[in-house]
Design a protein around this nucleic acid. Structure first.
Length: 288
DNA sequence: TGATATGTTATCTT
DNA sequence: CAAGATAACATATC
């Protein structure tokens, strides 16, 4: 669902639309999705300009306007790490961030509405209410970011790094790929697809992978993530981009959701199993 | 009708 | 103790 490529797609589209706009209000019918509290977020964000937008793992990060110099100096005296400057969004399983005109008809599962200048609004919709938005100080953000694994597109994501991670555990390699504390942003769809491309069985204990396989898997991870971004994400069920459009990567799945169908590579039947409580797809003939 | 799906975290179990 | 496994969260769909 929203994994790295989906969140990156939203970031790319949304940054063009809302950077420079001012937040005029925040309303919600689901207060538990707004942290630390609706009141705190409203107080800190209302009237502020959105000055930047980033992505880290599956998180979308809104950078808010810092106070004018005089106020900033005062705030710094009080302790700069206390300055709330970032608004984080996690879409979890079924979240959507839709950019709409306030006159547009309501969307499905609309939970939080962030009103913006010029009659626009951002609607945080989420069927299951697992998603959340969170106001954090720059200090808190550093801690949160520091606890997350390496970004696949960062230069630290080397074969050596991946081999190092894998060598320390005998958990199934698919579980390790999806471990956000080790590698950031890979979820069920891209883990399955990457393992198929690398011809590695998802159940293989991570430490048993040969160097060549680690190298192949690293390339496969990068390739499927890039393809996901290129096709504006995968709309398997719920995902929509910031403009309410479906992604197209699901039309290019080699494996995911294709159990019982023929493997494009060998013509054999694709199987499905449970691994760590999640669906794992694999071709018994191609992956080992 | 009830099992199922996905991401993360809290909690239980080796 | 720490790593790993599993339950819980909420809800539409098959």
């Amino acid at each position: 669902m929203p994994e790295l490529p989906e969140v990156e797609t939203i970031r790319q589209d949304l940054s063009k639309l809302i950077i420079g706009k001012t937040v005029t209000d925040i309303t919600t019918n689901t207060p538990k999705m707004v942290k630390p509290s609706v009141e705190a977020v409203k107080k800190a964000v209302k009237g502020k300009k959105i000055v930047g937008m980033e992505r880290r793992a599956k998180l979308l990060i809104f950078q808010l306007q810092t106070p004018p110099p005089a106020l900033l100096r005062e705030a710094l005296r009080a302790g700069s790490s206390k300055l709330p400057t970032y608004l984080l969004f996690h879409l979890k399983l079924t979240g959507r961030l839709l950019f709409r005109d306030k006159k547009d008809p309501a969307d499905d599962w609309q939970r939080v509405v962030i009103s913006l200048s010029k009659g626009k609004e951002l609607r945080f919709c989420d069927l299951r209410k697992f998603g959340w938005m969170k106001l954090v100080t720059s200090g808190q953000w550093l801690v949160i970011s520091g606890e997350m694994g390496v970004e696949p597109f960062d230069k630290e994501f080397t074969v050596e790094y991946l081999g190092q991670i894998f060598s320390k555990t005998s958990r199934p390699v698919k579980i390790v790929l999806m471990d956000q504390k080790k590698i950031a942003g890979i979820g069920n769809i891209y883990a399955n697809e990457a393992l198929f491309l690398a011809r590695v069985d998802p159940r293989r204990p991570a430490k048993k992978l040969r160097n060549k396989e680690v190298e192949k898997l690293r390339n496969s991870v990068l390739n499927v993530l890039k393809a996901g971004i290129k096709y504006h994400g995968a709309s398997d069920q719920y995902y929509l981009d910031a403009l309410g459009q479906k992604g197209k990567y699901q039309e290019h799945f080699l494996l995911y959701g294709r159990d019982g169908k023929k493997c494009f590579e060998c013509g054999g039947e694709i199987k499905r199993m449970k691994l760590g409580g999640r669906g794992a797809f694999y071709c018994p003939n191609c992956q080992n």
